[in-house]
Amino acid sequence: MSALVEVSDLAKTFDVSAPWLNRVIERQPKLFVHAVDGVSFSIEKGTTLALVGESGCGKSTVARLLVGLYSPTRGDVQFDGQATNASRNAAELRTLRRRMQMIFQDPYASLNPRWKVLDIIGEPLREHGLVPGKEALRQRVGELLQQVGLAAADCDKFPHQFSGGQRQRISIARALATQPEFLVCDEPTSALDVSVQAQVLNIMKDLQKTQGLTYLFISHNLAVVRHVADRVGVMYLGRLVEVAPKAELFGSPRHPYTRMLLDAIPDIHMTGRARTPVQGEVPNPLNPPSGCAFHPRCPHANARCSSERPALTRFQGIEVACHAVQEGRI
Score class of each variant (00 low, 15 high):
M1G: 14
A3F: 00
L4N: 05
V5C: 05
V7Q: 07
F14Y: 13
D15I: 02
A18T: 07
P19N: 06
V24A: 14
E26K: 15
Q28A: 15
Q28H: 07
Q28C: 04
K30I: 09
A35P: 11
G38Y: 06
G38W: 09
V39A: 10
V39G: 06
S40Y: 05
K45Y: 13
T47R: 15
T47S: 14
T48F: 02
L49C: 04
V52Q: 07
G56M: 10
T61N: 05
V62M: 04
A63M: 05
V67D: 03
V67C: 01
S71E: 15
S71V: 15
P72F: 10
Q82W: 12
Q82R: 14
A83V: 04
N85K: 06
R88F: 00
N89Y: 03
E92G: 02
E92H: 12
L93H: 13
R97G: 05
R97M: 08
R99F: 01
D106V: 09
S110K: 07
L111C: 02
R114N: 05
R114I: 02
W115D: 08
W115T: 00
D119L: 03
D119I: 04
I120Y: 09
I121Q: 09
E123L: 09
R126Q: 12
G129T: 09
E135I: 14
L137M: 14
Q139W: 09
V141N: 01
E143V: 12
L144V: 11
Q146L: 10
A153I: 15
A153Q: 14
G164Y: 10
G165T: 11
Q166H: 13
Q166A: 03
Q168H: 01
Q168W: 06
I170H: 07
A175N: 05
A175D: 01
P180F: 10
F182R: 08
D186F: 08
T189D: 07
S190Y: 03
S190F: 06
A191Y: 12
V194M: 11
S195K: 13
Q199G: 03
V200S: 02
V200T: 08
K205T: 13
L207V: 03
Q208K: 12
K209F: 01
Y215G: 04
I218V: 15
H220G: 08
N221G: 11
A223I: 03
V224E: 04
A229W: 08
G233H: 14
M235S: 03
Y236F: 12
R239I: 04
L240Q: 05
P245I: 06
P245T: 05
P245V: 07
K246W: 03
A247Y: 02
F250E: 08
F250Y: 13
F250D: 07
S252Y: 12
H255L: 11
H255A: 07
R259Y: 00
R259W: 00
L261A: 00
L261P: 03
L262M: 10
L262Y: 01
L262S: 01
D267N: 13
D267Q: 15
I268Q: 10
M270K: 15
A274R: 13
P277Y: 05
V278K: 11
V282Y: 09
V282K: 00
N284C: 08
N287Q: 13
N287D: 14
P289W: 10
A293C: 00
F294S: 02
H295M: 15
P296K: 11
C298L: 08
P299N: 04
R304E: 14
P310R: 10
L312I: 14
L312K: 12
G317C: 06
E319D: 13
E319P: 04
C322R: 02
R329N: 07
R329L: 15
I330V: 15
I330A: 12
